[in-house]
Write a protein that binds this DNA or RNA. Structure first.
Lengths: 199, 199, 199, 199
DNA sequence: TATGAATGAGTATTCATTCAT
DNA sequence: CATGAATGAATACTCATTCAT
């Protein structure tokens, strides 16, 4: 009888075991040989579970995104204003903590996906975007219910995400103050309604 | 007497003669050999005027940005609202016209600059950003004077630029509606006062 | 009671089920995985019946040669001159009909056997050659009896076969007129005895 | 001033310096690295003079064919019958002497060219064929003038070449007597007059 | 008897940059 | 001033075969 292997599980295991490798070496410097060695299997085995190096990278990125998502959920659960939640969301990869590499990797991935407009790459980008869309959407929906957010128009979910992408990109520049810029943006969304008007 | 050629002028000439080459082939597919051939000089000569391929690309990009700037000035001069001007500014590379390649090239350049965090690259990015900052700054300043823009706080120049960068990046995704997203963003800036006041 | 399967029979079944696969994909592009899948068994099972991929290919080739042999027998039975029979024999794989692939496969096989001079490969080649030798030998023997062929010397069976191999090889060249060349060769064998000399 | 290099000459030099390498390692086992090392240049330099590995092989093969051609010319000059000349021509690669490898290489090349039906490969094969065609053509023309060859019909140049290709291929088989087969073939060409005339 | 998961060797090619002339 | 010949590092992917179950 043949050995039975859960393919998806093994894929995930390989990806998980290479998480650190990716974070350390970066995406472009990752070689399939390294991946195989790190995962403790032969190079051929890698191609038994992934069709292409790109696919491996996607899988590893996905595990990282899963991690980030969990952190976001933690933030979600905190009892602070929606604005603050969004701020913490957006600032997560910019935090000093362990997160430094996230920023680097995300930036690299963004760079790669801007140059490689293959179908697979775009599809993956969209998939990732949608995940974050739903998380942010929830926060904003809540915020609107609580009156934190203006009641008119569609929720500025996409606007926030797009701005955040710009934030990641622009943050590469020395004199760019991420926190300040993000704060300014959130001001726009949460309509600080200049000076006490509205009322 | 030997013909004296201003070094800067020759640099510029080389850059100008390669503008189309860049727009056609893209940045990564541009080879120094092609550049030399197109400029009608030897490969070695190129390195007489530029220290590195990167520098050549910067020079060519600069000529392209000059072009774009001129187009922006034309828009500036149009008699429309500041909001409309900003919209036209931002949408310029997304226009059908000839501009198609601008978007592609800018995206590619953004991608490259996200992966290559060398000092020169960052410095160049900052230089470019500042050019656009000043142009947008003028429009916004005017807008505020005319009352189109809220009077409080700093002008959201950086916010707009950062959002625009995100726009360029996200526009690679099939289902992304650039115009709509940009419009939504401009709404945040220009019509912040929730309950129909302003009017 | 377990179903008893004759090992040779199963070998033959596997070979037969892969005939089309070989004809379509060619020899080199045939993978053992494909073979197993097409034969409806596991990869390991294939190696239960064949020692090596080469052996599988031999077995499939043999089924194809069987087919060709049958066609040759049909030609044999036609009431035409021996010369015409030989011509039809030789031209069979060059015919438009379905035979197109036969030529391709035979050429590929010839190429492989020229590069892989293993004992098995040579033995197989000899086996195949001998099959055709006997068929052609019969025709020529008849022809001599009927006076179609010169009476002196050994029958040019080998000569014809060797020439035919050259024909298959050379026919890869665009400007090669197979029919004409073959005809010229047959003229030599059938000694058109220039202009009525003989006498 | 730039260094001036005669490109064709350098190509030839590289090819010449790798002649032995090809003869020893065979065509398929030749690596570009080896070629570069043997030619005493960098790998990149090889690609300065050849577009592809295939081209290098062609060039080396050409030098070998040049050698063979010279030997053929020597044979040409010998004072023997045309039949004997053709025999010596054809048997050249089968001779014990140094020629052993020629046969091997030619066989390998034939094998490769049967599997790789690219335009370049076919073009090269045709080029080679034409060279031999002209040489053999001369001998046959002479032979006919001297009455050694029948006076009617076109010279069987192509027939001989095609047969020779078959000879090279079939000679891989143990029990194949090249000399005898070739002799039989030449009999067909030179002694067509059936009934013992000859005279 | 049947299976299929695991394996790993092996190689062509590009192009920015230098420096002898 | 100008040239262009020379350089060499670096990496994904296939597939026949085995053997534990």
């Amino acid at each position: 009888m043949a050995i039975v292997v859960n393919k998806d599980e093994k894929r995930r295991n390989i990806a998980l075991s290479c998480r650190d490798l990716l974070l350390e070496h970066g995406i472009r410097n990752l070689t399939v040989s390294q991946i195989a060695r790190t995962a403790g299997v032969g190079k051929g085995t890698i191609y038994e579970y992934f069709g292409t190096k790109e696919e491996i990278v996607f899988a590893i990125m996905e595990t990282i995104i899963d991690e980030v998502s969990q952190k976001l959920e933690t933030i979600e659960a905190q009892s602070v204003t929606a604005r603050e939640k969004l701020f913490r969301f957006g600032m997560l990869p910019f935090g000093e903590e362990c997160a430094g590499n996230y920023l680097q990797i995300y930036r690299e991935f963004l760079g790669i996906s801007l140059m490689d407009l293959s179908e697979e790459m775009i599809a993956f980008s969209q998939r990732v975007r949608r995940r974050f869309e739903s998380m942010i959407g929830q926060i904003m929906a809540e915020a609107r219910q609580r009156g934190e957010l203006r009641a008119d128009g569609p929720l500025p979910v996409g606007t926030a995400l797009t701005f955040w992408v710009g934030l990641v990109a622009d943050s590469r520049m020395d004199d760019f103050d991420v926190a300040r810029e993000f704060d300014t943006f959130l001001d726009l969304i949460f309509a600080p309604t200049p000076s006490g008007e509205t009322a």
